[in-house]
Design a protein around this nucleic acid. Structure first.
Length: 678
RNA sequence: AGACCCGUAGCUCAGUUUUGGUUAGAGCGCCGCAUUGACAUUGCGGAGGUCGAUGGUUCGAGUCCAUUCGGGUCUACCA
């Protein structure tokens, strides 16, 4: 017998391989089933503490039920993560002096697939290292042929049922990635920004009105001014025209309740092509261009917003020639200058407001008028709301239901098209007249609609979350009917973070209710966020990221520093991060083993609460593992030394007490696991 | 503007609903002692808490109610 203390790395990996190769994690045929679907991690990503935490919980649940005799399936798979992955590959191309446009769509897709192959195994090997007893025999990827077929089928059915439509509307536009984003991908940041007051001359008069704006360049696309109907200061102006400075265009002054007389100057410029509220107001008043020099009001049908920005957010269209081709912010500076020279700029001041940023690109977004595909979320939401109201699905902890309802009750149609190349290409073909037909392939579309003319396929791809909203049933082979789907759907529980309740959980419920007529899962366990020991969110820019694998296998200081500083968006933070890391982990991080890590997660887990991960805790649990290890070593040694032979159990006080304790412990475990209080 | 969460020992956290009930627990850290044959990733002992504050309900409140302070999150936002 060796004299060494507990050394987890030696035994854990070997044991996992034995488990996996023996088929222990694979499901059987028994109808008494229990199933979980893993929230699919980004295929090119790496595991973070949150993954570690959630997988530890899921593994506990699945192992408990497996050992209780249930037929278990823990579905594993990865997500293609459209924008995130496309960005990474694009950056790599740029580093080589290439761009995605220069190599073309097909070559680019191949690049991404290569990248996926290169980095895709990393995440799965990390999941194995965490000891997660996933069924690897049924691993799925959201861009597998079978999964693609499911996504297409879902899209086609929604299209044919009239729940997906194409529309020209304002979307949140990311000017760097040059794609639309859904409302959820917008991050509103609180900032101190500038606000300017600008003079608009009244028609046939030497009088003017003053308008406040934070985006003066949108003036080039103004279609009206608006005042509150009850505001006596301006009631005489309603119905009159004003001239946009520098633009030689007259715009009507309209009355609308949207205008708050208390705010700014009480007069608002209306730019329906570049602001969501203005768009709605413009629609109400039927704003449209009568000719180049005059905007008019009319019916809602006549509403025709104008856009003065291209997809690269450069000035175009009806704006004066001199601004054409200028970036939005350059145009702003230039325009302010011109306004000043023409005595049209009255005031510049600062005020607290918010600006929309892209969650991936971290750039200021621009509302832009484009053709996009939308899912009728309001219709799909109804059964999804019902499912939670009737307790077909329960949230743990229950207070998340409130958050869920709050969002679902006010849900907006979901923009699902993205102007990217990496993803599920929208299964739509257009005929010569631009009419859209849905189908699995060009042949399919032709056959179904008896079309003979030329067809062109839609260029856009689908929002990644569209495909992941089908996750629980698409992984089981839907739309083909099969025994697996029968056996394991709905899944029993979902374990995930609150940050994707809207992105994923809500949409899964909507889609699954629609296609399967049942819920995707019966219980949603919402975990808290793993933060650092000071309660700070773990993030690359703060340099406080911990890799669960490093806690398991240990890491040297050099490696840790390398990891925390590579590929940084803000290199100026590098020194600070190095200093702080050196201080916290002067000798790197010890190897603690998977069991100690998971035990730490369990001990810190409390439904719905964020976790401040304290490195001290894991040390304690490693020592606890060591204790158990040595206790067994001791027993083994004594058994050998004393040539112990098992005999029939004798009734005595001590063993009665022991078995009673063991029984009670087992009952406690059952209760706690049922309540997911680990 | 609305909704939600947190505040308990020096630090990180249990305990708070279902069920209010004697001296409020754990790990780490700290102090003291012990110990080289399962284990120093050790053993034994100890100090340390106005349970954020105020008021209320109650025989009894960390736990229930109201108010309030501090920290955080989400959703929606007016030029």
């Amino acid at each position: 017998m060796d004299k060494k203390p507990y050394d987890p790395s030696e035994i854990e990996e070997k044991l996992y391989q034995e488990w996996e190769s023996s088929g222990l994690f694979e499901p059987g045929e028994d109808s008494d089933s229990y199933s979980l679907a893993i929230p699919p991690p980004n295929v090119t990503g790496t595991l973070h503490m949150g993954h570690g935490f959630q997988n530890a919980i899921m593994d506990c649940l699945i192992r408990y039920h497996r050992m209780s005799g249930k037929n278990t399936l823990w579905q594993v798979g990865t997500d293609h993560a459209g924008i995130a992955t496309e960005m990474v590959v694009e950056r790599r191309l740029n580093a080589e002096g290439k761009s995605k446009e220069s190599i073309g769509r097909e070559a680019f897709e191949k690049e991404v697939w290569d990248w996926k192959k290169y980095s895709g195994n990393k995440i799965t090997s990390q999941l194995r290292r965490l000891g997660s007893s996933l069924d690897w025999s049924s691993e799925r990827f959201t861009l597998d042929d079978e999964y693609q077929h499911a996504v297409q089928s879902a899209f086609i059915q929604l299209f044919e049922d009239g729940l997906i439509y194409q529309g020209k509307r304002l979307v949140n536009w990311d000017p760097v990635l040059e794609t639309s984003l859904s409302d959820l991908e917008v991050v509103n940041k609180d900032l101190t920004i500038k606000i300017w007051e600008i003079k608009y001359q009244l028609e046939d008069s030497d009088q003017f009105v003053t308008v406040a704006t934070t985006r003066p360049e949108t003036l080039l696309g103004d279609m009206a001014l608006a005042v509150n109907p009850g505001d006596e200061r301006f009631s005489h102006l309603i119905g009159k025209n004003a001239e946009i400075p520098l633009c030689n265009r007259l715009i009507p002054i309209v009355a609308d309740d949207y205008v708050d007389p208390e705010f700014g100057t009480g007069v608002v410029k209306i730019t329906p092509g570049h602001d969501f509220n203005d768009y709605e107001l413009g629609k109400r008043h039927g704003l449209h261009l009568v000719d180049e020099t005059q905007c008019g009001i009319g019916t809602e049908k006549e509403f025709d917003p104008i856009s003065i920005l291209s997809k690269a957010v450069k000035i175009i269209g009806i704006a004066p020639e001199k601004f054409h081709g200028m970036d939005r912010f350059d145009a702003r500076a230039e325009l302010l200058n011109d306004l000043k020279e023409n005595d049209c700029l009255i005031k510049e001041s600062e005020y607290e407001s918010t600006l929309p940023y892209g969650d991936r690109s971290d750039q200021i977004l621009e509302p832009l008028l484009t053709d996009q595909w939308y899912v009728d979320a309001k219709t799909l939401a109804k059964p999804a709301i019902e499912a939670v109201k009737t307790k077909e699905i329960t949230f743990v902890p229950a207070n998340w239901e409130k958050t869920y309802f709050q969002w679902m009750d006010n849900i907006q149609d979901w923009c699902v098209s993205r102007q990217l190349w990496w993803g599920h290409r929208i299964p739509i073909w257009y005929d010569e007249n631009g009419q859209a037909f849905a189908g699995h392939s060009e042949d399919d579309v032709r056959a179904k609609n008896t079309l003979t003319g030329p067809l062109t396929q839609e260029e856009d791809v689908l929002d990644t979350w569209f495909s992941s909203s089908l996750w629980t049933f698409a992984t089981l082979g839907w739309p083909e009917k099969n025994s697996k789907l029968e056996l394991f759907h709905p899944t029993t529980a979902l374990v995930t973070g609150f940050d994707i309740i809207f992105f994923w959980v809500a949409r899964m419920i909507m889609m699954t209710k629609y296609f399967m007529k049942e819920v995707p899962f019966k219980e949603v366990y919402i975990t808290g966020l793993i933060k650092d020991e000071n309660g700070q969110k773990m993030s690359k820019s703060k340099g406080n990221i911990l890799d669960p694998i490093d806690l398991i296998d240990g890491v040297s200081l050099e490696e840790l520093l390398e990891k925390r500083t590579e590929g940084m968006m803000q290199p100026q933070l590098k020194e600070k991060i190095i200093k702080q890391t050196k201080k916290q982990f002067p000798d790197g991080i010890d190897s603690y083993g998977t069991d100690a890590l998971r035990y730490t997660y369990y001990s810190l887990a409390s439904p719905g609460r964020d976790i401040n991960f304290d490195i001290g805790r894991i040390k304690g649990y490693r020592n606890f593992c060591n204790k158990i290890w040595n206790a067994f070593r001791f027993i083994e040694m004594q058994a050998v030394n004393h040539e112990y032979q098992p005999t029939t159990p004798k009734a005595d006080d001590f063993s009665d007490w022991m078995s009673q304790k063991i029984n009670q412990t087992s009952i406690n475990c059952k209760t706690h696991i049922r309540n997911i209080s680990l």
